[in-house]
């Protein structure tokens, strides 16, 4: 019984793949689309099937791809075969995939623009936040001055600055950069001050006993000591960073993935809007993967197996 279920489970994605292909055949036959318009969707389905075959050894592959195929089938069936009055709100997946292929240059450009803005905002917040935190680590008075201010400012959602920033800064791009950087600056500042304060006394004494100069003390001791905490802050703040990014782009930028969605919503081109959702999902995953890679590289010295 168990064995039979297992075989059924393994066969399910292949059956669904065939069902999807069959559905495409019906659509072609009916003359709704020509061969060229359907090609991207067919290519996607074949690609997915190839992945299923290549990664057959992993148990979860069949499940994940069954769900993906299932969603595509239901979605395609609803959009193509039900005659609803709001069909423009529910574009069929083959059209979304076709748009992704057709708009690829613009989409890649949008991803790059968004990524660049995010990276710059992040870098600005990290450099300024960490530098100020290190100064606060050296000077207790400065710290007592900065912390209450930081507590208040970090409580204000940075997105509320957006309209004002647009008025103040000469360009939308600078305003967006400001909103992203200021949204990340305060949490990074506060968390880094906390992690410097929690430095182990003996570790600090070991460093002091070596009679280090100030530069080595900051770059070789305090900074590496802070990196794990910094990465924790990154992981916590990355989703709010994306919200700031998309929010900033929605408010009037002329490039980026948020802009792509907003621009096409204005024209009620929901095919492209849905394509934009998918692109944002891909961008977020890519950034997370990049962050993970960086973390692995920079935090090799921490016992990561122990924490995972």
């Amino acid at each position: 019984m168990r064995r039979a279920l297992n075989i059924l489970y393994k066969l399910l994605p292949h059956a669904l793949f065939l069902a999807l292909m069959g559905m495409m055949g019906v659509i072609l036959q009916r003359g709704d689309r020509d061969w060229a318009a359907l090609r991207p969707m067919l290519a996607l389905a074949v690609l997915m099937e190839a992945i299923v075959l290549l990664r057959a050894k992993r148990w979860e592959t069949a499940g994940i791809f069954s769900i993906l195929f299932g969603v595509l089938i239901l979605w395609q069936a609803y959009a193509s075969f039900m005659n609803t009055s709001v069909s423009f709100l529910f574009p069929p997946p083959d059209k979304v995939v076709a748009v992704l292929v057709k708009d690829i240059r613009l989409i890649l450009h949008s991803i790059l623009a968004s990524f660049w803005l995010l990276l710059l905002g992040f870098a600005l917040a990290v450099v300024l936040g960490v530098a100020l935190a290190l100064l606060c680590g050296y000077n207790r008075r400065l710290q007592n001055l900065v912390v209450p201010i930081a507590d208040v400012f970090s409580a204000i959602p940075a997105l509320v600055y957006a309209p004002y920033a647009v008025a103040v800064f000469p360009s939308f791009w600078l305003a967006a950069l400001f909103v992203i950087a200021s949204g990340l600056f305060w949490p990074i500042l506060i968390n880094t001050i906390q992690s410097i304060n929690s430095i182990d006394r003996t570790l600090l004494d070991s460093a002091r006993a070596l009679d280090l100069n100030r530069r080595d003390m900051i770059l070789r001791i305090l900074l590496p000591y802070c990196t794990p905490g910094l990465f924790n802050t990154f992981t916590m703040q990355i989703s709010s960073a994306f919200m700031l990014l998309i929010g900033a782009e929605l408010m009037g930028m002329t490039s980026g993935v948020g802009w792509y969605v907003k621009y096409n919503s204005d024209f009620s081109n929901y095919t492209k809007v849905i394509a934009g959702f998918i692109v944002i999902g891909v961008l977020v995953s890519l950034v997370n993967a990049g962050l993970d890679l960086l973390k692995r590289r920079l935090l090799m010295w921490t016992n990561m197996e122990g924490r995972a």
Binding site: D200, T202, L203, D205, S206, A207, R208, A209, L210, D211, R220, I221, P224, W301, T302
Partner: peptide
């Protein structure tokens, strides 16, 4: 602290 002295502690003597 000075360059003429070296110190070792019980814990955290190394930079991780």
């Amino acid at each position: 602290p000075g360059k003429n002295r070296g110190v070792v502690f019980q814990h955290y003597a190394l930079f991780p």
